[in-house]
Write a protein that binds this DNA or RNA. Sequence first.
DNA 1: CCGATTTGGTTGATGCATCAACCTACGTGG
DNA 2: CCACGTAGGTTGATGCATCAACCAAATCGG
Lengths: 154, 154
Amino acid sequence: MGTSGLSELSEHQAAVWARYQRMRVLLAGRLGRELAARTGLSEADFEILTALAESPDGDGVRALTLRCGLEWEKSRLSHQLRRMEQRGLVVRCECAEDNRGAVVRITEHGRELAAEAKRCHDEAVRRYVADALTAEQLDALGEIADAVLRRLPR
Amino acid sequence: MGTSGLSELSEHQAAVWARYQRMRVLLAGRLGRELAARTGLSEADFEILTALAESPDGDGVRALTLRCGLEWEKSRLSHQLRRMEQRGLVVRCECAEDNRGAVVRITEHGRELAAEAKRCHDEAVRRYVADALTAEQLDALGEIADAVLRRLPR
DNA sequence: CCGATTTGGTTGATGCATCAACCTACGTGG
DNA sequence: CCACGTAGGTTGATGCATCAACCAAATCGG
């Protein structure tokens, strides 16, 4: 002690952070790659399709609702939906209640891919994470996430 | 039990995963944003500059060395270095020992920004992670990362 | 020594993420 | 009712990440 400045990390803290970063990058890369290889979907596609497929409202979800649920920026959603519409995964139509708004509907093709992707994704998460950790570690991970999230503004 | 298919996640597992994902996305976003706001560097810039500044070899690092250390793809490094060279953060020059190769040198400007960025980044990691977790949680995070990394091919 | 293969690196195309600017419709206070 | 502020969405530009194609220098097998 005595050598640590106000904002420095101890060697141990830096080492943990480095391992976390490595896990984060490699895990995300692998999950994304497997999903893309098996379904042709990106993680972004998957998030949208999952939200649409899970939505109880059979016919379409308001873009705003989607955005809030995913915590996405509006331009991000707009660009993403444009690309997905071109590939026939979703359809955008006008909104009756608010003429500014957009309603997004998942297509049959989209729904099929979403189901396939969920299987694929869950299996990968199980393989790389759930099965790799003890029950205590899994609980700890949840609590760690909560603790960090509490520190994040908003 | 009995209801779980081969690749499904239990509710608890899915909930932990969701919280992890949320932490991952929001934390990365916040760290990147703070770094960009305070130094004008992206995380990618920061990784490169850190590697170059830490390198004992005062005059330049082989691109290959950089690539292996960061585990980056070669085209990614090439594009990134091009952008950084345009901004005057690094210089690329030819390699004496291997005429195919490239040697990267950090500029004075780059070195100053790297130091500033390290302070900024360490402070943010401390604030959002190190100070948010108990000593046990910090250790647990390191072990979780190791356990997952052991499952990841290569 | 020579031809084939491998290796280090660049380039171009595409998708994803973000920022800023913009447009139109909604809502509210006068 | 109207003028103004705000909210929902789109668009364009830029940076980042990846893939595939390419090039030249190195290396290896005969």
